[in-house]
Design a protein around this nucleic acid. Structure first.
Lengths: 201, 201, 201, 201
DNA sequence: CGGTAAGCGAGACGGTACGTCATGTCTTAAC
DNA sequence: GTTAAGACATGACGTACCGTCTCGCTTACCG
């Protein structure tokens, strides 16, 4: 009975961390397409089999490495929610400006872009990326919008899950597809348009 | 400047068309990652060198093939603009419903998704994809929105280039990243929210 | 010195033998120029890299395969020296007749001719061919001639290394360059001329 | 009626000479294997088809070019025969020393070696090389040896066609196969051994 | 506490595709 | 009608990675 699942208890923590570091480093330095499993293994000082034993693909490795990186950074930070000062417009503008800063940081841009790209074409990976990277953020927006709606600051019949896309999708598109420049002025305008509509009042 | 440029006058039209057909066929049947230049050449009955002579990469081939396909289809069709019945909301809902239909057509989805994915990671290709696939469409929205604005149906200070993203980006995100289902109800809602804002009136 | 040398201990004996067989078979069936490394790999059921890992060129492979073939055949045979019955002329005639038989055997002719040809033009290979195919045979002649000289049957000042060429080179030339037919009568004549000179006695 | 043979009358003399020069130059500079028909055409400023129209292979071109070179040099030189001073040994030593000089001249060595190599493996070419390069020389030896025999300086029953190989083949082998160094002392010894035999007198 | 089975680094293996090069055929325009 | 030019289908080149495998080794765990 050839067991298909390796024994996670015996797994080498050192190797795992080295693989994460190697994967992130290579993607940042040489780009995702030129990053190879052989290259990761070599840089991590690890046998190829150790990677194949624990991950299914190059993208899997990178996704985990990237998530780990996120946890690492999030460790010593403030509460993860969207601030609620009562002024929805101001809160959204603040958060979106921070998002822009994040998106333009090459440490984030490289892996996130690569994972997104791979996810477009590989459905399974795409769903994982969405579930682990996007959904948690979306949930924060939903929560904040729902609270604003309940405070009477938004249409009472509003669907927050849809509404959040008005803020998030335009920015994501400019970032991912490079359709135009990202700037604070731009994100502020988006908040304004989305909140009050583009029709005359 | 001893350019390596081949003589386009001598180019074989037959081969070019065969390569387009092979590329589109293979992407549809086996997916983009499994589509190889060798495979395209073989199916097109063409030497590999003929591909390398005229294109720089697999993605380049597919982009041209896809554009050619678009022109082919557009040949016998109506005017390409967004309708202008005077009712902006209705016009937008109509167009966006048609867009959804288009996005869900596997003949379109396969290549367009693959090109988008590659473009995320390959900046040069990405810019080409945006310029040739997205911009022309964006221009139509700009035109329609500007006309509505001039007719007093939109804020007089509106920036149409930004405004169009409220309609287009959410749909693009749902399609590309599979963040949620695309439906007519959804696009109608987007038009509603974007036109009149999510705040109470 | 980070040599690229692979680990010979891990080498696959099976593959090596399959490659030898494929190389010899293809050369015999299709000729050396039409024999390709890809073809050898395919027939041997082996990856190309396995050939490139261990050999530097098609000719290298064939040389080793041919040497291996020689060892295989020599395994169950008599002593490899030139017979010494005391009658030098007879001994030489016998050996040279056997050599002619060997040269005309297509199993030998194909590879040996190909290696010789490649060796003419590729100096490194040429030296290897001479060292591994010719020199060992030459040494046998040197030994036999020296013994005859010490027995007073040859000039006391004779240089055996030069003398052997009188027997060997004419035959080699007829075989390799096809300058004329090889026959027992011919080799007998060569022995006669070389031993006693072409001048009247 | 597609004529198979091109009209030699219209042939471009300029191109032919340019091709000869290019072929010889490339073989000398880069070696025969790296010399390509495309390379010859490019250096000669000639279309590939012009080469394919008049020659059957790279080796054919080189053979003709090399023969042409020989004729060029032979134009302003002395009678081509082997001298006949009455002293056969001296005459042969002289000629063989000159032969050695010739063989070691890189202008000769390059093409001659390449043609010989190709001829070993390509029988048709080999026969042409022998007929055009070797036979004419052999004939000179036959003539000289026959004259010496008729003058009583050689065995009356001697076969000159065989005898000449005692002089020529050893030198050819040392040159082509690099089995040992060529020197005047060596050729003198060969003449001595061949004339008087290696047995004691 | 000594035996054994797992994970591990290493890397050879059969494959597939890469991008390049040369082959020999063909077409075009210029002379 | 030959020529220079060069596009074309073909096919081998040598390289890079893929994912699988086998080798000793070290390192727990268990009997």
């Amino acid at each position: 009975m050839p067991s298909r699942t390796p024994d996670a208890g015996r797994r080498s923590e050192t190797s795992r961390r080295a693989i994460y570091a190697a994967a992130l480093g290579l993607v940042e330095e040489t780009g995702y397409p030129k990053t190879t499993i052989e290259g990761i293994a070599a840089r991590a000082g690890v046998g190829k089999q150790t990677i194949y034993r624990w991950w299914g693909s190059k993208a899997d490795v990178l996704l985990e490495a990237f998530l780990d990186l996120g946890e690492q950074q999030a460790a010593g930070e403030a509460a993860p929610g969207i601030p609620d000062t009562g002024d929805l417009a101001a809160d959204l503008k603040l958060v979106l400006r921070a998002t822009v800063d994040n998106l333009l940081d090459p440490r984030f841009d490289g892996p996130a872009r690569a994972l997104s790209a791979e996810g477009l074409v590989d459905e399974k990976l795409g769903r994982a990326v969405v579930a682990k990277l996007l959904e948690p953020n979306f949930d924060l927006y939903v929560e904040r919008l729902r609270s604003a709606r309940d405070a009477g600051q938004l249409r009472p019949d509003l669907d927050p899950r849809i509404a959040l896309e008005l803020f998030v999708a335009p920015i994501a598109q400019r970032w991912l597809q490079r359709t135009a420049e990202l700037s604070y002025g731009y994100t502020d305008t988006i908040v304004d348009y989305a909140l009050h509509g583009i029709a005359p009042r």
